[in-house]
Amino acid sequence: MTANGQPIDKNGMAAAVAADIPHGSFVNLGIGLPTTVSNHLAADSGVTLHTENGMLGMGPEAHGDEVDPDLINAGKIPVTELPGASYFHHADSFAMMRGGHLDVCVLGAYQVSAAGDLANWHTGKPGAIPAVGGAMDLALGAKETYVMMTLLTRDGAPKLVPECSFPLTAVQCVKRVYTDLATFAITPGGVEVRALHGTSFADLKALLDVPLLDATAR
């Protein structure tokens, strides 16, 4: 496999995730980078967005006169309501998640292990005040959990690892990992590389400590 184009940026990653979300899905987008996936969902995608603080049918960020302090998303940003929206209390909102009713959840991550363990809530650094929010429920609650992240830290360390060194959010929950250099599927048979962006399979193998299967021809 030869190098394939260029590494993709955050927008490119968001577009790649959006393209893999099945038509008509109920989807929760995590705070931060995953939120940008909504910018890439086609108008006819049929996707309904869930926000953990009690709403289905969440619309885009609110501006100007649209801002209503009673209508916010999980990141506490004012948002809008789409036709067909519904509101419910917090236990119902998490029951919806924990009961496996959401189709896809997209989360950021510090690390993902080859077995699909996720670390995305706590650096574990001394003095850091931990805050978990809905991360542990989101990681387990959807039928499919996708992660969006850069493949390397700023210092060049891989974030797809044999075992997470950061505190875990949940075990064996991640199905796909979308990064700037490649897209991975975590399957019972191992970690498959589904797409490459500006790198080769051989270079990727050399970069990561995780055994990889070349599935780019699929």
Partner: peptide, 19 residues
């Protein structure tokens, strides 16, 4: 307050808190 040791924190995943 937390850094000064003047407040105790019980951290609960949000879905567990609600449930």
């Amino acid at each position: 307050k937390y850094r000064a040791g003047e407040i105790e924190l019980e951290l609960v995943p949000q879905g567990n808190l609600a449930e």
